[in-house]
Design a binder for these strands. Structure first.
Length: 561
DNA sequence: TCGGTCACGTA
DNA sequence: CGTACGTGACCGAG
């Protein structure tokens, strides 16, 4: 019987979990049965049955086939319990409630469990319930039958996770979040392969203009570095510009007294002395020279693509992160991000995403009404009876916890005008302060760190305040990240028929590299996917609009600010 | 060699 | 005393 029929007979169908693990052999598992298959089989199975492909994580995932629905056990684990640890043995033990201090480690004799650890070595789960340590890593593909067995336990884990998600008390839909977080991992894997198109010649010119030419050798590098330094050290010999302490003393000598030498602090004093201006310009050049210079280009750009590692949900709030400078490329270098011949970029960035998200997750009907406007701050300003700019600062201050500055009066207005949203933020702050974990709208657990030891009373207060701001911010930023990823993976799925790829995700911005002929269609898709995501994510409880600025451009720098 | 601090890039 | 992240230089402890 053909594979598709066998799978269908075993109950595999749309949305049903189908375990898969890819090594030299491709193992499949569903409904208590296991199969070996080839990579070529998978696209056909996907098209015919639309299963939810279930894998342990990216190392067992299928990259390149653009499968759409998946369940990433590692990603869902991080959603359920927070943090970044997601190794299969730990995930399994956590999911099934096994003691983590009994977690067996590979390569060490386990005398305590020696009697119970035997059993069938071709079963990835030991009699005592733990995953065999010699199966993790690459142990699961040492034998032709193992990938299917490895896929089978991934499905068992996923089913248990599903039940836990169903039981979660979160404002949103944790299962929906699990689906999109899983797809986001797949997107990350594809982003790592795809890379961001870079015109290396343009990049080279920009870097040279800012930081100087590419050093020929070590000695040349030293000479060029000294040359850069001289623009500042002409004012004061023998000062180590890379030593903030020395720089601060130097500034004091010319009458500039600052607590630290950060550029935002020095910028207002730029014209007070030529040295300050020279120092600020030097810092700018030095940043490019050291972090985004010729060595960065050589290390991370190959074949006209900037590639780095991508993480689907990192840190506290579960934002995506990227390495190799993909997320912090200085604006001056963005002209080097150029679409390839016959292609264009479609760029889309969400507008006012965090206050809109707050309106949904807090369930504040009044803020949701404001969120129905193209410009959310306009109705807020009207309600508060203040200038738009004041309203904006107040809303941002409320979300981020700023207490200094001039937001005070408007902040009180916010409490009166939007009590539900403000209470949501205050509750998060209080929970964090007290050290209680919080869960985002989509169900991600954000664990509060323990207070440091040896703190005095004011130290404790400061640490608690920090934790409160952390929790409050995590709920807004985290929900925004969940919304963004749902949008991104929807776009990913809908773009599949086109000659188009997402090449960058930047918290509220998507960059799609697309054949020129498909650019208009891609732009329309970004818009319709946003509407679709807005519907699905907030269901019908509120009517917040989610807006995006979408443009078709040749280079990233052409995007309007 | 390592973690902490400073600094600065992005959102 | 607004948050998150990645990166690199430097410092001081080990």
């Amino acid at each position: 019987m053909p594979l598709v029929d066998e799978l269908a007979a075993a109950g595999v169908g749309p949305g049903r979990l189908l375990g898969v693990a890819i090594a030299d052999e491709v193992g499949l598992a569903a409904g208590g049965q296991r199969w070996n298959a080839s990579v070529d089989d998978l696209a056909g199975v996907d098209a015919a049955l639309h299963p939810r492909w279930t894998w342990w994580g990216r190392s067992t995932a299928v990259v390149g086939l653009r499968l759409s629905a998946c369940w990433d056990v590692a990603a869902v684990h991080r959603l359920l319990v927070g943090g970044v640890a997601d190794e299969p043995a730990l995930v399994w033990a956590t999911t099934f409630g096994l003691a983590l201090d009994g977690l067996p480690a590979d390569g060490q004799l386990d005398f305590v469990n020696a009697g119970t650890a035997d059993g069938d070595e071709d079963d990835p789960v030991r009699p005592d319930g733990y995953v065999r340590p010699d199966w993790v890593g690459d142990g699961w593909h040492r034998d032709v039958d193992r990938p299917a067995r490895w896929a089978e336990v991934a499905v068992r884990c996923a089913e248990r996770q599903r039940a836990q998600l169903d039981a979660l008390d979160a404002g949103g839909d944790p299962v929906l979040t699990a689906w999109s977080e899983s797809a986001a991992e797949l997107l990350c894997a594809e982003l790592e392969v795809e890379g961001l198109p870079i015109d290396v010649d343009v990049a080279d010119e920009l870097i040279t203009a800012i930081a100087g030419p590419r050093p020929r050798d070590e000695a040349d590098a030293t000479r060029l570095r000294a040359e850069r330094d001289r623009r500042v050290t002409q004012w004061a010999r023998d000062v180590d510009l890379r030593n903030p302490g020395e720089v601060r003393e130097l500034l004091a000598r010319i009458g500039v007294d600052v607590p630290d030498t950060r550029s935002w602090r020095l910028e207002p004093l730029r014209d007070s002395h030529p040295l300050v201006a020279a120092l600020l310009d030097w810092r700018k050049a030095e940043r490019v020279a050291t972090t985004y210079g010729h060595s960065w280009l050589a290390a991370h750009v190959r074949d006209g693509r900037l590639r780095g590692r991508w993480s689907g949900s990192d840190g506290a709030a579960g934002r995506m992160t990227a390495q190799a400078g993909l997320h912090n490329l200085p604006a001056e270098l963005r002209p080097a991000v150029v679409a390839e011949p016959g292609h264009a970029f479609v760029r889309a960035d969400l507008g006012q995403i965090e206050p809109r998200v707050l309106a949904v997750v807090s369930g504040d009907a009044e803020l949701a009404r404001a969120g129905a406007a193209d410009d959310l701050y306009a109705p807020v300003a009207q309600r508060l009876g203040v200038e738009r700019s004041v309203a904006k600062v107040a809303v941002l201050a409320a979300m981020y916890g700023q207490t200094s500055g001039t937001a005070g009066e408007a902040l009180r207005g916010l409490h009166r005008g939007y009590p539900v949203a403000m209470r949501y933020l205050d509750d998060a702050y209080e929970r964090g302060r007290a050290g209680r974990d919080v869960r985002t709208h989509g169900g991600r657990l954000v664990r509060m760190p323990a207070l440091g030891t040896g703190l005095d009373e004011s130290g404790v207060r400061a640490a608690q305040g920090g934790r409160g701001r952390y929790a409050r911010n995590a709920l807004v930023q985290g929900a925004a990240a969940e919304f963004f990823k749902m949008w991104a993976v929807t776009v990913r799925a809908r773009l599949a028929p086109l000659d188009a790829r997402i090449v960058l995700c930047l918290h509220d911005e998507l960059l799609v590299h697309v054949a020129t002929a498909d650019a208009d269609e891609a732009a329309a898709l970004l818009r319709s996917c946003l509407d679709e995501t807005a519907q699905r994510w907030q269901r019908e409880r509120t009517a917040v609009r989610f807006v995006a600025d979408i443009s078709t451009i040749q280079r990233w720098s052409q995007a309007k600010a």
